[in-house]
Amino acid sequence: MSAARPHLCLVDLGMGNLRSVERALRAAMGDDLARDIVVSGDPGAVRDAGLVVVPGQGAFGDCSLALQRHGGALARALTDHIERDGHFLGICLGLQALFEGSDEAPGRGGLGVFRGRVRRFQDGLRDADGARVKIPHMGWNQVSVSPAGAHRIDEGAWFYFVHSFHVVPDDRSLVAAESEHGERFVCAVAKGNLLGVQFHPEKSQRAGLTLLRRVLEAVP
Protein backbone atom coordinates (compact mmCIF):
# COMPACT_ATOMS: atom_id res chain seq x y z
CA MET A 1 0.00 0.00 0.00
CA SER A 2 2.25 2.75 1.23
CA ALA A 3 5.56 0.98 0.67
CA ALA A 4 6.50 3.29 -2.18
CA ARG A 5 6.75 6.35 0.03
CA PRO A 6 9.59 6.81 2.49
CA HIS A 7 8.26 6.24 6.00
CA LEU A 8 7.30 8.80 8.58
CA CYS A 9 9.47 8.49 11.68
CA LEU A 10 7.68 9.38 14.90
CA VAL A 11 10.60 9.84 17.25
CA ASP A 12 10.15 8.03 20.55
CA LEU A 13 11.93 9.85 23.34
CA GLY A 14 10.11 7.78 25.96
CA MET A 15 8.08 10.78 27.05
CA GLY A 16 4.45 9.85 26.46
CA ASN A 17 1.60 10.98 24.20
CA LEU A 18 3.07 9.27 21.11
CA ARG A 19 -0.14 7.37 20.47
CA SER A 20 -2.19 10.57 20.29
CA VAL A 21 0.15 12.00 17.71
CA GLU A 22 0.16 8.76 15.75
CA ARG A 23 -3.64 8.62 15.76
CA ALA A 24 -3.92 12.21 14.57
CA LEU A 25 -1.33 11.68 11.83
CA ARG A 26 -3.26 8.64 10.56
CA ALA A 27 -6.52 10.57 10.59
CA ALA A 28 -4.88 13.49 8.76
CA MET A 29 -3.35 11.19 6.12
CA GLY A 30 -6.54 9.54 5.05
CA ASP A 31 -5.99 6.99 2.30
CA ASP A 32 -4.46 9.27 -0.28
CA LEU A 33 -1.45 10.30 1.79
CA ALA A 34 -1.01 6.98 3.62
CA ARG A 35 2.56 6.06 4.47
CA ASP A 36 4.12 3.84 7.09
CA ILE A 37 4.63 5.35 10.51
CA VAL A 38 7.70 4.00 12.29
CA VAL A 39 7.69 4.78 16.01
CA SER A 40 11.31 4.63 17.04
CA GLY A 41 14.14 6.25 18.92
CA ASP A 42 16.67 4.63 16.60
CA PRO A 43 18.94 7.02 14.65
CA GLY A 44 18.68 4.73 11.59
CA ALA A 45 14.91 5.18 11.42
CA VAL A 46 15.40 8.95 11.42
CA ARG A 47 18.02 8.85 8.66
CA ASP A 48 15.81 7.07 6.11
CA ALA A 49 12.59 8.93 6.89
CA GLY A 50 10.66 11.15 4.51
CA LEU A 51 9.19 13.07 7.43
CA VAL A 52 10.45 13.19 10.99
CA VAL A 53 8.01 14.11 13.75
CA VAL A 54 9.31 14.84 17.24
CA PRO A 55 6.49 15.10 19.75
CA GLY A 56 7.08 15.53 23.42
CA GLN A 57 5.47 16.31 26.68
CA GLY A 58 7.27 16.60 29.97
CA ALA A 59 10.50 18.21 31.08
CA PHE A 60 13.22 19.73 28.91
CA GLY A 61 15.96 18.05 30.95
CA ASP A 62 14.55 14.56 30.30
CA CYS A 63 14.14 15.39 26.63
CA SER A 64 17.76 16.56 26.44
CA LEU A 65 18.95 13.31 28.02
CA ALA A 66 16.84 11.21 25.66
CA LEU A 67 18.30 13.00 22.64
CA GLN A 68 21.81 12.18 23.81
CA ARG A 69 21.14 8.43 23.92
CA HIS A 70 23.19 6.19 21.62
CA GLY A 71 26.20 8.39 22.35
CA GLY A 72 24.49 11.38 20.78
CA ALA A 73 23.72 9.50 17.56
CA LEU A 74 20.01 10.33 17.71
CA ALA A 75 20.73 14.04 18.15
CA ARG A 76 23.18 13.88 15.21
CA ALA A 77 20.68 12.07 12.99
CA LEU A 78 18.06 14.74 13.76
CA THR A 79 20.38 17.69 13.14
CA ASP A 80 21.66 16.07 9.92
CA HIS A 81 18.08 15.58 8.74
CA ILE A 82 17.27 19.23 9.49
CA GLU A 83 20.50 20.55 7.92
CA ARG A 84 19.63 18.67 4.71
CA ASP A 85 16.26 20.50 4.84
CA GLY A 86 14.44 17.23 5.44
CA HIS A 87 10.75 17.45 6.28
CA PHE A 88 10.44 17.94 10.04
CA LEU A 89 7.68 18.64 12.52
CA GLY A 90 8.45 19.38 16.15
CA ILE A 91 5.58 19.50 18.64
CA CYS A 92 5.82 21.16 22.07
CA LEU A 93 9.13 19.88 23.50
CA GLY A 94 9.96 18.83 19.95
CA LEU A 95 10.00 22.55 19.12
CA GLN A 96 11.82 23.62 22.28
CA ALA A 97 14.53 20.98 21.72
CA LEU A 98 15.60 22.77 18.50
CA PHE A 99 17.07 25.61 20.57
CA GLU A 100 20.27 25.89 22.56
CA GLY A 101 18.90 25.53 26.04
CA SER A 102 16.01 26.12 28.42
CA ASP A 103 15.55 27.93 31.71
CA GLU A 104 13.74 24.77 32.78
CA ALA A 105 16.99 22.77 32.89
CA PRO A 106 19.94 25.16 32.92
CA GLY A 107 22.83 22.69 32.54
CA ARG A 108 21.19 20.74 29.70
CA GLY A 109 21.48 21.51 26.03
CA GLY A 110 19.01 21.23 23.20
CA LEU A 111 19.88 20.38 19.62
CA GLY A 112 21.04 23.95 19.02
CA VAL A 113 19.72 24.00 15.46
CA PHE A 114 18.54 27.55 16.14
CA ARG A 115 20.08 30.22 18.33
CA GLY A 116 17.92 31.29 21.20
CA ARG A 117 16.54 30.02 24.48
CA VAL A 118 13.42 28.59 26.01
CA ARG A 119 12.01 30.83 28.73
CA ARG A 120 9.28 30.55 31.35
CA PHE A 121 6.15 32.67 31.24
CA GLN A 122 6.36 35.63 33.61
CA ASP A 123 4.81 35.04 37.01
CA GLY A 124 2.24 37.28 38.63
CA LEU A 125 0.73 38.85 35.51
CA ARG A 126 -2.91 39.93 35.56
CA ASP A 127 -5.23 40.32 32.60
CA ALA A 128 -7.42 43.34 31.79
CA ASP A 129 -10.07 42.10 34.25
CA GLY A 130 -7.56 41.74 37.04
CA ALA A 131 -7.71 37.92 36.92
CA ARG A 132 -4.38 36.16 37.29
CA VAL A 133 -2.71 34.78 34.19
CA LYS A 134 -2.28 31.11 35.05
CA ILE A 135 0.80 29.03 34.40
CA PRO A 136 0.84 26.54 32.74
CA HIS A 137 -0.82 28.12 29.75
CA MET A 138 -3.48 25.46 29.31
CA GLY A 139 -6.35 25.44 26.87
CA TRP A 140 -7.31 26.84 23.49
CA ASN A 141 -5.71 29.99 22.18
CA GLN A 142 -5.60 31.84 18.89
CA VAL A 143 -2.54 32.40 16.74
CA SER A 144 -1.36 35.33 14.71
CA VAL A 145 0.57 34.12 11.67
CA SER A 146 3.84 35.60 10.31
CA PRO A 147 5.06 35.25 6.70
CA ALA A 148 7.16 32.16 7.54
CA GLY A 149 4.06 30.28 8.69
CA ALA A 150 1.48 31.55 6.23
CA HIS A 151 1.43 28.51 3.92
CA ARG A 152 0.74 26.06 6.74
CA ILE A 153 -1.07 27.86 9.56
CA ASP A 154 -4.34 29.77 9.21
CA GLU A 155 -4.55 33.28 10.64
CA GLY A 156 -6.69 33.36 13.75
CA ALA A 157 -6.93 29.57 14.08
CA TRP A 158 -7.44 28.11 17.56
CA PHE A 159 -5.05 25.48 18.89
CA TYR A 160 -4.74 23.56 22.15
CA PHE A 161 -1.77 24.47 24.37
CA VAL A 162 -0.28 23.00 27.55
CA HIS A 163 3.06 24.54 28.54
CA SER A 164 4.89 26.77 30.99
CA PHE A 165 7.88 27.57 28.74
CA HIS A 166 8.11 29.13 25.27
CA VAL A 167 10.88 29.63 22.71
CA VAL A 168 12.63 32.95 22.13
CA PRO A 169 14.52 32.72 18.81
CA ASP A 170 17.37 35.18 18.16
CA ASP A 171 16.44 35.21 14.48
CA ARG A 172 12.98 36.77 14.18
CA SER A 173 12.63 35.61 10.58
CA LEU A 174 12.07 32.08 11.95
CA VAL A 175 8.82 33.13 13.63
CA ALA A 176 5.86 31.41 11.97
CA ALA A 177 3.17 32.36 14.48
CA GLU A 178 2.68 34.07 17.80
CA SER A 179 0.06 33.91 20.49
CA GLU A 180 -0.63 35.75 23.72
CA HIS A 181 -0.82 34.68 27.34
CA GLY A 182 -0.20 37.66 29.57
CA GLU A 183 2.62 38.42 27.14
CA ARG A 184 3.07 37.82 23.43
CA PHE A 185 5.11 34.69 22.69
CA VAL A 186 6.34 32.70 19.73
CA CYS A 187 4.19 29.59 19.24
CA ALA A 188 5.59 28.35 15.91
CA VAL A 189 8.85 28.57 14.00
CA ALA A 190 9.49 27.56 10.39
CA LYS A 191 12.43 27.33 8.04
CA GLY A 192 12.30 25.51 4.71
CA ASN A 193 10.72 22.11 5.31
CA LEU A 194 10.90 22.46 9.08
CA LEU A 195 7.98 23.46 11.25
CA GLY A 196 7.98 23.56 15.02
CA VAL A 197 4.81 24.27 17.00
CA GLN A 198 4.31 24.85 20.70
CA PHE A 199 0.65 23.82 20.60
CA HIS A 200 -0.69 20.30 20.14
CA PRO A 201 -2.15 19.78 16.66
CA GLU A 202 -3.09 16.24 17.72
CA LYS A 203 -5.52 17.74 20.27
CA SER A 204 -6.64 20.74 18.23
CA GLN A 205 -9.57 19.19 16.45
CA ARG A 206 -10.02 20.19 12.81
CA ALA A 207 -7.51 23.07 12.96
CA GLY A 208 -4.88 20.59 14.12
CA LEU A 209 -5.67 17.92 11.54
CA THR A 210 -5.61 20.56 8.80
CA LEU A 211 -2.15 21.64 9.85
CA LEU A 212 -0.90 18.04 9.97
CA ARG A 213 -2.37 17.40 6.55
CA ARG A 214 -0.53 20.38 5.06
CA VAL A 215 2.73 19.10 6.54
CA LEU A 216 2.06 15.64 5.09
CA GLU A 217 1.08 16.98 1.68
CA ALA A 218 4.45 18.66 1.24
CA VAL A 219 6.38 15.40 1.75
CA PRO A 220 7.31 13.55 -1.48
Binding site: H137, M138, G139, W140, N141, Q142, V143, S144, H181
Partner: peptide, 8 residues
Protein backbone atom coordinates in the same frame (compact mmCIF):
# COMPACT_ATOMS: atom_id res chain seq x y z
CA UNK B 1 -5.85 36.99 21.97
CA UNK B 2 -6.42 35.22 25.20
CA UNK B 3 -6.88 31.67 26.33
CA UNK B 4 -10.52 30.70 25.75
CA UNK B 5 -12.97 29.69 28.44
CA UNK B 6 -13.73 26.02 27.83
CA UNK B 7 -17.03 24.18 27.56
CA UNK B 8 -16.77 20.55 28.59
Amino acid sequence: MTVARRLI
